[in-house]
């Protein structure tokens, strides 16, 4: 399992990367591996305003479905439309081509409340 440094993590297994006020969001290696083959990702419409901790979409595998929770509050700038045709990107490249959406963060402080890579790795260990 890989949890790259420099990303922030949630206990719901999303990651977040902030660059100049824009936060890119996806799900972690642990999440994609627990789900198995991802077959569908439902994402919000661009322009939607979401609060931290609220569900922003759904990820489906063949036999399971999970809500996606937003790590930070803000307005959705862009969603990854490639996932519509190639949901498998979430499995093959969860931190890169499998990203889910970009948000204009409204309160940068919320980023500070997320887990570091090390903290998240410890959290995963505690689940087992």
């Amino acid at each position: 399992m890989e949890y790259p440094d420099g990303l922030s993590y949630t206990k719901d297994h999303e990651w977040a990367l902030e660059e100049e006020g824009v936060v890119t969001i996806g799900i972690t290696d642990y999440a994609q591996s627990e789900l198995g083959d991802v077959v569908f990702v439902e994402l919000p419409e661009e322009g939607t305003v979401i609060k931290a901790g609220e569900p922003f979409g759904v990820v489906e595998s063949v036999k399971s479905v999970s809500d996606l929770y937003c790590p930070v509050s803000g307005e959705v700038l862009e969603v990854n439309h490639d996932l519509e045709g190639e949901p498998e990107l979430v499995n093959s490249s969860c931190y890169d081509a499998g990203w889910m959406m970009k948000i204009a963060v409204s309160n940068k402080k919320e980023l500070g409340e997320l887990l570091s890579a090390e903290q998240y790795a410890d959290y995963i260990k505690s689940l087992k």
Partner: peptide
């Protein structure tokens, strides 16, 4: 597309 159905999505 069973993830729509009650045995997986339950109350949703």
């Amino acid at each position: 597309l069973s993830a729509r159905e009650q045995h997986i999505r339950r109350e949703k």
